[in-house]
Amino acid sequence: MTDISTVARDLINTDPALAAEVHRQILAKTASIGFGLTVKEAAVLEYLRDRARESDIAPSFEEIMVNLDIGSKSTVHRILTALEERGKIQRLPNRPRAIAIVEKAA
């Protein structure tokens, strides 16, 4: 089996334009989209806002994972932790589904 670094090296040597496009697309998926949020973080925040409008109950990690096509609950946890560190949400410790969206006053 060939490892990813060998494939990447071969791609760069044989087709630098394609390698540059792949790199651009990878950066676009992980880049910040404003206010220091990644695309996934912004999507989760928007989903939380939508759910808050519909219900007083925050979504579970499973619901976030399924509705936003996120691969694992640990990724959801990482995204929520990042949103909390950036001051976008607030979570209460030891309470399930205790997520509040922090709206800054303008």
Rank of each mutant, 00 (worst) to 15 (best):
K40A: 15
E41H: 06
E41T: 07
A42V: 03
A43M: 13
V44K: 07
L45M: 05
L45Q: 02
E46N: 10
Y47G: 06
R49C: 08
D50Q: 12
D50V: 01
A52Q: 15
A52S: 15
A52T: 14
R53F: 12
R53D: 15
R53K: 15
E54C: 05
E54K: 11
E54H: 04
S55D: 09
D56L: 14
D56W: 11
I57L: 13
A58Q: 07
A58E: 10
P59I: 01
P59C: 03
P59F: 02
S60W: 00
S60L: 01
F61I: 00
E63W: 00
E63T: 12
M65C: 02
V66Q: 14
V66A: 10
V66E: 14
V66S: 07
N67L: 02
N67G: 04
N67A: 14
L68N: 03
L68Q: 04
D69E: 14
I70F: 06
G71W: 04
S72D: 05
K73A: 11
S74E: 06
S74K: 03
T75L: 11
T75W: 03
T75N: 10
V76L: 08
V76H: 08
H77G: 05
R78H: 14
I79E: 02
I79Y: 11
I79L: 14
T81N: 08
T81D: 07
E84P: 00
E85K: 12
E85W: 02
E85S: 10
E85M: 10
R86C: 07
R86A: 15
K88F: 15
Q90N: 08
Q90E: 12
R91H: 12
R91A: 09
R91N: 12
L92T: 15
L92M: 13
P93E: 13
P93C: 03
N94F: 11
N94V: 04
N94Q: 11
N94H: 12
N94W: 05
R95S: 09
P96E: 08
R97F: 08
A98L: 10
A98S: 15
I99W: 02
I99A: 02
I99F: 03
I99N: 01
I101S: 11
